[in-house]
């Protein structure tokens, strides 16, 4: 199969990947870079488990064609704690407030929330809910997730 070579920034590092041209960003992250945090919950952009941040915006990486990633900056769940391993306030808040149960949606949920807080440090509850509207969760009823994102916003402020 025809391959494509793409160079982009991944969690702060300059990287180059040579992968089949048909691969999605999700498949590239999982199979080329072995970053398993983003999950394939549906593969068609409906569930949000594969959410990563591209140039500041939360996107469904399962729908993102890999050639499009050239020159862009990608942040995944593996890249939001500090280099020393200090968890991001969102990660801490999810642990603290039971925003995690089975954890399958968590990576995507956190990336949607991070994109929100990066752009809007003081969101309303409605804005928080809108930011994760594309991230399905079956375990939590979203309540403790929404609370956790609010808690993290407070911490970051």
């Amino acid at each position: 199969m025809k391959k494509v070579s793409v160079s982009f920034t991944l969690n702060g590092d300059p990287v180059t990947a040579e992968v089949p041209v048909t691969w999605s960003l999700l498949k590239t992250l999982r199979e080329y870079f072995e970053l398993n945090g983003a999950k394939k919950g549906c593969g068609v952009g409906e569930c949000g488990a594969c959410t990563v941040i591209v140039d500041g915006d939360a996107v469904s990486s399962c729908l993102y064609p890999i050639p499009e990633i050239e020159g862009r900056s990608v942040t995944t769940i593996e890249g939001i704690a500090s280099a020393e391993g200090e968890l991001h306030p969102l990660q801490k808040a999810f642990i603290e407030n039971n925003g995690v149960q089975c954890g399958y949606c968590t990576s995507g949920m956190l990336m949607s929330a991070k994109s929100l807080l990066d752009q809007n440090p003081d969101p309303t509850e409605d804005e928080i809910r809108t930011s994760i509207a594309g991230n399905f969760c079956r375990c939590t009823g979203y309540i403790q997730i929404v609370e956790a994102i609010g808690m993290a916003a407070e911490t970051i402020k």
């Binding site: 398993n36 642990i95 995690v100 954890g103």
Partner: peptide, 9 residues
């Protein structure tokens, strides 16, 4: 379960 918020689980 911290692994679940870091993508390591």
């Amino acid at each position: 379960e911290t692994d679940k918020v870091t993508g390591r689980a």
